[in-house]
Design a protein around this nucleic acid. Structure first.
Length: 471
RNA sequence: GGCGACGUAGCCAAGUGGUAAGGCGAGGGUCUGCAAAACCCUUAUACAGCGGUUCGAUUCCGCUCGUCGCCUCCA
């Protein structure tokens, strides 16, 4: 059974076969660090992380590069707004990104190229494109010549006479010397006060698209296996990348598999900084743990649109409590259910990998985990410790493939939190046990209720009382 | 206007050419001093609508409607 991938290029699901054996070159269009990352960003990066982890699990060596667009109109605007330099803005929000991705258990890319550190290479690539007559120097800027690139529109399935010209109209006036409405800037002049770099075409900065082509060429080479990004980047950004890269290297396909995540919407609209309707990842993490947010994002197939609602996060929290709950199950039997448990674990494992092999269907894979949870809870009383622990081990290791560390979440439920109040909680639990012995149930229940209000959940069992924190 | 994606129960969400995983919520039980957790049962005359292909479609094709996205910065 091999992994199959839905490829935006071609619109088909295809078996995954890297260009070079088991080596996978993966590039993800990263952040423009201009504001705090929001949960739409989280969706992309968690999805790509899940894919990277799964491929790695399958034995591939994934080389992951993710750019940082630290030069951009919005960054310049943010610098003015915040009264700091553009560099400082980029650094501030790059740090914000790092902090939050760590909590979501997103593995760091192996390389994070920045535009500001790639200028000579970008200029060299533009020069190369001009030499190849794929680009031309206009009055103020350098443009890529789209009419010279026959395959233009293949990714976004747009033809010249469909929407591209109509959409580009109105921009032509602002760009003197541009020959075709579809042509796009590789280099543009700096306006007064903007950051700039010297180039053969004067002081200016790169266009948006060229950076990715250059960074990929410099870090991964002429051709890569996987190129990922949000669905909103298909056109024009990724279309333009293909044109630049293939025109420059003469090799194609530039990227073998194009993976795009469905956009996250809120109140019927795409979540975006520019629309002002965003919820930052940090905001969510005030109320929910990283693993819960990650679970939420993986509960929907990465290509589907995802509508954010507060309720869906509550559902994810409940789901997480269910997953860790199965880890707290105790073996209580002589082993009459051992065989059933073993089979349940095998069934879940097989279903899990079937789902994951089908275009990284994390939602379907999670469904298998929940089934295993039910079987563990149902059968634990009649199982021996070894069989139960084995099934629980399967649950933990499958969740781990998705980047969800159930052991860690469980430990956080049992201890963790700010400061360590465990001693005091244990004391209250003991006192309550005494009250219960004295049949002072009103007081005992008060202790329980008050603790619950503080997020500490008590569960009585014949063997005593256990407590945990709300996920 | 053009291009694309999506439309499954109260909600979230997988999936399949042969009559629909899972989760949340709700109701009823078991357990419990009462709870909680867990388990069991119940909660879709059928997957937006209309046609078509097929022995048979939710699952393929066409159209319609709706939602979202892209065509301008955008994950």
């Amino acid at each position: 059974m091999t992994v199959s991938i839905s490829n935006t290029l071609g619109g088909q699901r295809e078996p995954f076969a890297p260009l070079d054996g088991t080596h996978v070159k993966m590039y993800v269009c990263g952040m423009t660090p201009k504001r705090e990352p929001h949960i739409g960003h989280a969706r992309l990066f968690v999805a790509m992380d899940m894919i990277r982890r799964y491929l790695t699990y399958c034995g591939y060596e994934v080389e992951h590069v993710q750019n940082i667009t630290d030069v951009d109109d919005k960054i310049i605007a943010a610098a003015e707004r915040e009264g700091i330099t553009a560099d400082a803005v980029a650094q501030k929000y790059t740090d914000a990104y790092d902090a939050v991705m760590g909590r979501l258990n997103v593995l760091r890319a192996h390389v994070f190229p920045k535009v500001t550190e790639t200028l000579p290479q970008i200029i060299a690539m533009i020069e190369g494109l001009i030499e190849r007559e794929a680009a031309y120097v206009a009055e103020e800027a350098v443009y890529f010549s789209v009419p010279g690139f026959a395959a233009y529109g293949a990714l976004s399935t747009r033809s010249e006479d469909s929407g591209i010209q109509a959409g580009a109209s109105g921009r032509v006036d602002d760009e003197p010397g541009k020959r075709d409405p579809r042509d796009f800037a590789l280099w543009k002049p700096a306006k007064p006060g903007e950051p700039w770099w010297s180039s053969p075409w004067g002081q200016g900065r790169p266009g948006w698209h060229i950076e990715c082509s250059t960074m990929i060429y410099e870090t991964l080479g002429a051709r890569i296996d996987i190129h990922g990004g949000g669905a909103d980047l298909i056109f024009p950004h990724h279309e333009n990348e293909i044109a630049q890269s293939e025109a420059y290297t003469g090799e194609q396909p530039f990227a073998k598999y194009w993976l795009h995540t469905g956009l996250l919407t809120i109140d019927g609209q795409k979540m975006a900084h520019s629309l002002g309707n965003f919820i930052t990842i940090e905001d969510i993490l005030e109320s929910y743990s990283g693993p819960v947010l990650r679970l939420y994002l993986l509960s929907v197939h990465y290509r589907s649109p995802l509508t954010y609602t507060p309720e869906s996060l509550e559902q994810a929290r409940a789901g997480m409590a269910r997953l860790t709950g199965a880890l707290r199950a105790q073996a209580g039997g002589a082993g009459s259910a051992d065989e059933q448990l073993t089979q349940a674990a095998q069934r879940a494992e097989a279903g899990f990998f079937d789902a994951m092999n089908s275009d990284f269907n994390s939602a379907g894979a999670l469904g298998q985990l929940y089934e295993l949870v039910r079987d563990i809870n149902r059968l634990s009383a009649d199982a021996q410790p070894a069989a139960l622990e084995s099934a629980q081990g399967t649950l933990v290791s499958l969740a781990d493939v998705l980047g969800i560390d159930l052991q860690e979440v469980l430990e956080a439920e049992l201890a963790g939190g700010d400061g360590d109040a465990s001693g005091f909680i244990d004391l209250l639990v003991e006192l309550r046990a005494d009250l219960r012995k004295e049949k002072q149930f009103a007081l005992a229940d008060k202790v329980r209720d008050e603790l619950a209000a503080l997020g500490i959940l008590l569960e009585d069992s014949p063997s005593g009382t256990e407590w945990r924190r709300k996920a």
